[in-house]
């Protein structure tokens, strides 16, 4: 298992390097002069030169890249143009909020999708199955920018149970977590169901039943464990996208996470901050994928030993 983990870890190195190069090039790939774009039409040439010098854009590309990588290894992503604070510090400040929201949404998604998907598969073609598929269809079709405000109208404005937006105690996280969790659970439910149906058809399920095991054990010990293997991949990708900030949902609920930071920095044309956000988001993806791979190893011994 340890060898497997080290293997996976080594495989992430080229990805991280590639990501860094892309993020570095990003500022040079966008059309036009980024500094002029940043400052707008009213900028003086002196201003432009000053910013260009501050960002190091007046140096040759190779030198810029070396500087960028050198700083990156030190954890230095430059300074925000707007607030003049280190980018790394700003992003890390916002990270806990995003992590909290991700964990809460994931819990909502799992609580709904695993039992519902399993039940739908076990009671194939029953009313529960139909109901779960209607739920999945609704969940997939409802965009977050619609469901979020709808929840706010119902639970905050009409019933007055929960705060409509903001960041604070447990109460504040419920609505955004439900908004994100429902969308996630919709596709997960379908996946759990179809994967479960496939596994329930396997010979080893027949063996488990022929052993006279209780149906509960057959379902949870023998079927679900194997059915979750494809689910974990998709779940991992969903977690990855949540950790990189749910742009819309965070904005709707004024949730101070990375997603909202990203949008704010784009609107303010704060290029170093945008760059920092992209890099952190990409690294998050790499990290989540690594975790997914390791989880695979735990669930599926075949992968672990290859």
């Amino acid at each position: 298992m340890i060898r497997y983990i080290i293997n996976r870890l080594l495989l992430t190195i080229p990805v991280v390097i590639a990501v860094s190069v892309l993020v570095f090039l990003f500022i040079h790939l966008i059309p036009g002069d980024p500094v002029e774009m940043m400052l707008g039409e009213t900028a003086t040439i002196a201003n432009v030169e000053e910013i260009r010098h501050m960002l190091g854009l007046d140096k040759p590309l190779g030198i810029q890249f070396l500087d960028f990588m050198k700083n990156l290894l030190k954890g230095d992503l430059g300074k925000s143009i707007v607030s003049r604070r280190p980018v790394m510090q700003i992003v890390l400040e916002r990270y806990p909020a995003t992590i909290k929201l991700t964990v809460a949404s994931a819990i909502v998604a799992l609580i709904i999708s695993i039992p519902l998907g399993t039940l739908a598969a076990v009671k194939h073609y029953s009313w529960i199955d139909n109901l779960s598929m209607i739920f999945a269809l609704l969940g997939v079709s409802m965009p977050n920018f619609w469901l979020g405000p709808l929840l706010i109208i119902l639970f905050s404005l009409t019933l007055g149970w929960l705060p409509p937006s903001g960041y604070g105690g447990f109460k504040y996280i419920i609505l955004p977590a439900i908004t994100l969790g429902t969308a996630m659970s919709a596709s997960l439910t379908r996946l759990v169901r179809s994967s479960m149906l496939e596994v329930l058809d396997q010979e080893y399920i027949k063996t488990a039943r022929a052993k006279g095991l209780r149906e509960r054990l057959v379902i949870y010990r023998h079927a679900l464990r194997n059915a979750l293997i494809p689910v974990i991949t998709v779940f991992g990708m969903q977690i990855g996208s949540l950790l990189s900030g749910a742009l819309i949902t965070e904005t709707i609920f004024s949730w101070p996470g990375v997603g909202r930071l990203f949008i704010e920095s784009i609107f303010r044309r704060d290029f170093p901050l945008v760059q920092g956000c992209v890099l952190i988001i990409a690294l998050t993806y790499v990290f989540v994928n690594f975790i997914v791979d390791i989880t695979y190893g735990f669930i599926n011994p075949k992968i672990r030993y290859e």
Binding site: A208, R225, N226, P301
Partner: peptide
């Protein structure tokens, strides 16, 4: 007790 045709698939791969 019962044993089946396909020994390749009649044991649970993850246990």
């Amino acid at each position: 007790s019962m044993i089946f045709q396909e020994p390749m698939t009649s044991l649970n791969p993850s246990l």
